[in-house]
Design a protein around this nucleic acid. Structure first.
Length: 646
RNA sequence: GCCAACAUAGCUCAGUUGGCCAGAGCAGCUGAUUUGUAAUCAGCCGGUCGGGGGUUCGAAUCCCUCUGUUGGCUCCA
């Protein structure tokens, strides 16, 4: 007999060889039907795998993330089975579960596949699911495993098996399909009631662009058709928030083939919005002791040879510009730091001056691969809210903390709540990819980790994500469709000070090396605005929105009064416009609602006589009649509150 | 850059298996209307059907190619 401890602390006794599914059945049939997998001593197992000793057991269902994983992973197998039946001879790469569903990388050999084939695959998929196929785990020797896939002529699986140790190889058999797989899987396919294949994409085998590109098919499954419908509806809703769509609708930005791809053009309303963000940050930075600097858009090739960027990125940059007579070469600047180093170097510095903080909204240009360009989030020309802090090694922590304060303040003012904080460190197995000494790297990495610990930040550590010159802390936010974008970043850099031979005179009258901190709270204005648009679905906070109100005169008779209202509100520094078209009020309201203007001020006979406005709030409706001053105070209070959100 | 799909008026989209001068709604312009909380009416303007090549008696429609967009992959100082 063995003891099974359940999450509520109760202990039950069973015969050796009992399965999690048996335990579930013992509790209730309903539970047994819903069990997808089991957590055994903290490790996720098949619910059908025999338990041979005393264990802590947790049954996993659709409600648990691990339960979903097991089902989606099993769905990947099922899709592979369907595809193998429909397209004999295809070869399989890997097929894991992902955040929302699963994918399988497949070499279709000589079959052509596109999303037009999805319907056929989905149909076969559901047929197979209804067969209640079980997933049978088999431990296989390396020799047998190799033999099986040699027979199948699947070089991808063979490569995977060759990387595994004998004794740790398992196969799963389901229906007609056998796959190399660690598991775990759901007991059988009956919970999979609804499937949707979502997209086809090319994916390099093992993420290596020098290797063959396989066809990746993404899909998602649900235990109920209704849940699938809800998910698809959610995707539709998300599309409405897409910054590319809203940017067009709200006249914020555009692109022109003639100007060039990846080069955004800011329209008046978008430029206004962006300028407000910049002014806000300038004010915050001014209070935090930053000094503005301005540098040109190009820099001599020598500058980037000194910085090391030339060696690393020279080949994948826009080609240099040459002066016609001297033949001197200049790069469009891909970052501002080398310029700022030269500003620092323009005269000697005393330790008493440090830290020095140079800030610049610097526009930079980077050659990005054409397939990667995406709205405002991935462009070839963009403006960083950049600053470089030059400080002594023992000032790093304070400075780092100061930057985090600024980032927190901004994210709070804009109501960004779901921010992922990532500490990006060097890949310890691939140190040649980075410049600088081990000692400096270790110092910088531990400084960042210490600050995160001290502030109790819930940060994730990622190895191999560091910049080539130093480790960093990134602030990552998701867009409407759940894609992750890096916004703010703080980077410690011991390398550029070396390369530019930056120094300060210490109290000992000797030269010392300062440390540089690169930081950009927004990251880039383009990307930040894009994420902001999606975050608030185009309903910008009052302090940022291009037009705060629109006056809607009932008829031309009240045009003069409308102008008076506009004029008065201007005096309170509230911005707006008048809809003077010869349209009905209902129409003007509809258009203003669609333009997402926060307040509509309706004025007619009554308002003119009383010197008031009738206020309608966007998405809320009629708020009643206000004195003009009263309305102005309401707006200004709201603006004040948001800007100074702590 | 790679894989796949897509590209028709400023915007959103119709255009069946190639067949009369390519259509609609919105926007724009002109006029009428003088309007009270999400669309007043009428007329007009607007397209070398992304560019180029080809097949055909005939191409928005079929083929090739280039460009761009979208979704991924790879990359991201």
């Amino acid at each position: 007999m063995i003891n099974i401890t359940l999450p509520d602390g109760s202990v039950k006794q069973y015969n050796q060889g009992v399965t999690a599914l048996d335990v579930a059945r013992d509790i209730s049939e309903g539970l047994a039907r819903n069990v997808l997998a089991a957590k055994v001593n903290g490790e996720v197992w098949d619910a059908t795998r025999p338990l041979t000793e005393d264990v802590q057991l947790q049954l996993l269902t659709w409600r648990d993330a691990e339960g979903k994983s097991a089902m989606w992973h099993s769905s990947a197998h099922l899709m592979a089975e369907a595809i193998e039946l429909l397209y004999p001879g295809v070869k399989f790469g890997i097929g894991p579960d992902v955040e929302n569903g699963f994918y399988y990388d497949i070499d279709f050999v000589d079959h052509d596949i596109s999303d037009k084939d999805f319907g056929k695959i989905e149909k076969k998929f559901l047929e197979l699911a209804r067969e209640k196929q079980t997933f049978d785990r088999k431990e296989v020797s390396k020799k047998d495993a190799l033999a099986y896939f040699t027979e199948k002529d699947d070089e991808y699986k063979l490569e995977l098996i060759n990387d595994l140790e004998d004794g740790e190889i398992t196969f799963y058999e389901s229906g007609y399909f056998t796959d190399l797989c660690r598991g775990p899987h759901i007991p059988n396919t009956s919970p999979i009631k609804a499937v949707k294949l979502l997209k086809v994409a090319g994916a390099y085998w093992r993420g290596d662009e020098t290797r063959k590109q396989l066809t990746r098919i993404y899909g998602i499954t649900f235990p109920k058709k209704k849940e699938l419908d809800e998910y698809l509806e959610l995707l539709e809703e998300a599309k409405k928030r897409d910054h590319r769509k809203l940017g067009k609708e709200l006249d914020l930005f555009t692109f022109s083939q003639k100007v060039g791809l990846g080069l955004p053009l800011w329209l008046p309303k978008g430029a206004q919005l962006r300028e407000r963000l910049e002014q806000y940050l300038k004010k915050v930075q001014n209070e935090a002791g930053y000094e503005p600097v301005i540098t040109p858009h190009i820099g001599n090739v020598e500058l980037y040879k000194t910085s090391g960027h030339y060696q690393k990125y020279g080949e994948e940059s826009f080609k240099p510009i040459k002066t016609p007579v001297e033949g001197e070469e200049f790069f469009l600047k891909p970052m501002n730091c080398p310029h700022h180093c030269e500003i620092y170097n323009s005269r000697p510095h005393s330790y008493k001056e440090l830290p020095i903080r140079y800030a610049e909204f610097g526009t930079v240009y980077r050659y990005e691969q054409s397939g990667e360009l995406h709205g405002l989030t991935r462009v070839r020309g963009f403006t960083q809210d950049d600053a470089h802090i030059f400080c002594t090694p023992d000032q790093i922590k304070d400075e780092f903390n100061g930057v985090i304060d600024i980032i927190n303040q901004i994210f709070k003012a804009l109501d960004f709540k779901d921010v992922i904080i990532q500490i990006s460190l060097r890949d310890p197995d691939n140190k040649d990819k980075y410049i600088g000494s081990d000692e400096n790297w270790e110092k910088a990495e531990s400084a960042i980790i210490d600050v995160a610990d001290e502030r109790g930040l819930n940060a994730v550590i990622e190895y191999g994500e560091a910049a080539f010159y130093g480790p960093k802390m990134d602030f990552i936010v998701k867009d409407a469709l759940g894609r992750k974008w890096q916004l703010g970043t703080i980077q410690v850099d011991y390398n550029l000070p070396e390369r530019f031979d930056l120094t300060y005179i210490g109290p000992d009258n000797e030269k010392h090396r300062p440390v540089m901190i690169h930081r950009a709270p927004f990251g880039s204005m383009e990307r930040f605005v894009a994420v902001l648009i999606e975050h608030c679905a185009g309903n910008f906070p009052l302090w940022l929105t291009p037009d705060q109100f629109i006056v809607l005169p009932i008829s031309e008779k009240y045009q003069e009064y409308a102008e008076k209202v506009l004029h008065l509100l201007k005096k309170y520094e509230i911005r707006g416009l008048i809809d003077d078209r010869s349209e009905k009020t209902g129409r003007k309201i509809r258009d203003a609602e669609l333009k997402k203007i926060p307040f509509m001020l309706i004025v007619g006979e009554k308002e003119e006589a009383e010197g008031t406005v009738s206020v309608r709030k966007h998405q809320h409706g009629d708020m009643g009649t206000f004195e003009i001053e009263q309305f102005a105070n309401m707006i200004n209070e709201e603006v004040e509150q948001m800007t100074f959100a702590k």
